[in-house]
Computed example of a mutant assay.
Amino acid sequence: MTAIIDTQLPDGLLDSGGCGLMNEEVLRLRTLDRYQVLDSQPEPQFNRIVTLAKRALRVPIALISLVDEERQWFKARDGLNVEETPRSLAFCDHAIRRRGVMVVEDARLDVRFRDNPLVTGEPGIRFYAGAPLITRDGQALGTVCVIDRVSRSFDDDDRETLTDLAAIVMDELELRLANRELAVLAQTDSLTGSLNRRTFFSLSEREIGRRRRTGCDIAVLVLDIDHFKKINDTYGHSAGDRVLAQFADQIGQTIRVQDVFARLGGEEFGLILPDASLNQAVETGERLRRIVEQTPIHTDAGPIKITVSMGAAMVKPGEGSVEPALQRADQALYRAKHCGRNRVVAA
């Protein structure tokens, strides 16, 4: 019996100097991160797949392996106790470099693996077969693989079975990714990437509930870009959209992780500040106002300087929603604009 050796790389993976290989690996790792599966808890649907693989292909070990930057991590395993191994030892690191099933009939006869500690020591790998987990855009995240401690053959039916099991795993991962992306789309404003109005009020209810339990303060800021209509009229709506997007990005990068920032409509945004007093809200507003004033927005029409006016208010004890505080903050915002704009006014 001989080992089947395959060193095939996907077309276009390697260019002169090796830069193509490096860039492809960076893209693969970023794609793996998008699926948010690394280091997740064991799940029955994946455990069933490795159990089925083990039974259908008559092997003692079956794994769903994901190849991270320096390790392979097992989403599901049957017949192996460890949760991960170094990538440098992983058969699966070789398997993700091709598009078909990789089979090693006897690892002792394969120059790539004969000195591998997983071959010379525990678990004593002799046979390996791995079907890559390939995303819709062609990135290989890992494998569904089966392992035996004795050398053996692997026929076409076995290859098809392993390929089908890998496809089932990818179908589940793709469905989860699509559902997460749809959830994000439902919660965010498509232009700015900030939360949308509906999500803002939904999260405000959570903060109101926390206030009832802990008595913590909740402050609210309403932000409005000054003279936004003039920006659209002067530079065009494309530049206006760019202003909205970069403004939202500026604010989003500056606020605390627990703060809730959303586009409420047009050029108006809302900010909920948990555990903040009115003075702290005004201080936050002033800090944000200075950042906006000092940071030009880069558009196709050239850099555009903008300013922002804000109104601040507190959610009062006994108020069951954020709406009354928003109304008070909106009235304060009106005063800020009436008094010359580019300022923060407290209710």
Rank of each mutant, 00 (worst) to 15 (best):
A262C: 05
V322E: 05
V282S: 04
R343I: 01
L57F: 02
S153N: 12
R58K: 14
I251L: 08
E43I: 05
I134M: 13
F127Q: 00
S153R: 13
A248G: 09
M170C: 08
L221E: 00
N232M: 03
T192M: 09
I49W: 00
D148N: 06
T284A: 10
L57K: 01
E25I: 00
F154L: 05
A167V: 10
R34K: 14
C19T: 10
R213P: 06
Q139K: 15
L32N: 04
Q246C: 05
V222K: 01
A312M: 03
F113D: 03
E83K: 14
E160Q: 15
V243I: 02
E83R: 15
D68Y: 06
R71T: 03
T7Q: 14
D156A: 15
V345Y: 01
V345E: 13
I134A: 11
V82S: 12
T7F: 13
L21W: 05
L38Q: 06
C19L: 12
G265K: 04
E25H: 00
A76C: 08
L32Y: 07
R112H: 04
G79R: 07
W73P: 00
D106S: 03
L13K: 11
C216S: 14
C216D: 10
V243T: 01
D11R: 15
R210F: 08
F247S: 10
N116I: 06
R256N: 00
E205R: 15
Y35S: 06
I125Q: 03
D106G: 02
D15W: 06
T199Q: 14
V292Q: 02
R197A: 07
L9K: 14
D158L: 01
F91Y: 13
G18V: 01
S153L: 10
D155G: 05
R152A: 01
